[in-house]
Simulated assay, not measured.
Amino acid sequence: MCMGLPMCITERRNTPAGHAWAHGRGESRLVNTALVGDCAPGEWVLVFLDSAQERLSPERAAEIDATLDLVAAAMQGHELTNTAAAFVLPSAMDAAQLAALTGQTP
């Protein structure tokens, strides 16, 4: 499974062209910015396999980070109580919500 990581650009790089240093989730990486264009320090991007695929607002980056924290906690066997996720899993949806999600009529 490939997951995108929200990362903040910390430094532009001239060599190699189309790259920048980014930091997120406790690590720094040299990321390819060819798909999103030149990025300035402080901008947020979604990184897959060391390649920035999408520009993010700081709010969206925080949402993705919080979701990844929930996934990490669940994978470590922590019981997830009192979580205020910004989404509802399909298993918790009623028939009308599932129909809307899949583009069908209830």
Rank of each mutant, 00 (worst) to 15 (best):
A34F: 08
F87N: 06
N14H: 14
S51M: 13
L98M: 06
W44T: 02
H78E: 14
T15R: 15
H19G: 00
E11D: 06
A85V: 13
F87W: 06
P90G: 01
V71F: 10
A61W: 01
R55I: 03
V47I: 04
A20Q: 01
L5P: 01
H23D: 01
A61R: 08
S51E: 14
T15P: 12
D69P: 01
M3Q: 12
H19S: 05
Q53K: 12
T105D: 15
G4C: 02
M7K: 04
P106R: 11
R12I: 08
I9S: 03
G42Y: 05
S51V: 12
V71D: 05
D50R: 06
E54W: 13
W44A: 02
T67H: 06
G103C: 04
G18V: 02
G77Q: 05
A17D: 13
V71L: 09
C39Y: 02
G37Y: 02
E27N: 13
A86K: 13
C2Y: 07
L35V: 12
T67Y: 13
G77Y: 13
D65V: 03
S57D: 10
A84T: 14
L35I: 13
Q104F: 13
I64E: 03
T67L: 12
R12P: 10
V45K: 02
G18K: 05
L56T: 05
L46M: 03
N32S: 09
T67F: 11
L30N: 12
T33G: 00
M3N: 09
E79N: 07
L101F: 04
A62G: 09
G4R: 02
A92V: 11
N14C: 10
G103E: 04
L5S: 10
Q53E: 15
A73L: 12
L68I: 06
A73M: 08
A72Y: 00
A74F: 08
Q97V: 14
F87Y: 09
S51A: 15
L68N: 02
G77F: 06
P58V: 03
T81I: 11
A92M: 14
S51H: 15
T102S: 09
S28R: 01
A34K: 15
N82P: 08
C39G: 05
P41D: 05
G4A: 07
A92D: 14
R25C: 15
M3P: 06
T15K: 08
V88Q: 11
N14W: 15
V88D: 11
L70R: 00
F48L: 10
A22N: 03
V71E: 04
L30R: 12
S57N: 03
T105M: 15
R13I: 02
R13A: 07
T105N: 10
L68M: 10
A73W: 05
T33P: 15
A17V: 12
M93Y: 07
E11W: 00
A17M: 13
Q97D: 15
E63Q: 14
P90T: 00
T102N: 08
S28T: 06
V71Q: 11
V31P: 04
G4F: 00
A96E: 04
R13P: 11
G37Q: 05
A72C: 07
F87M: 08
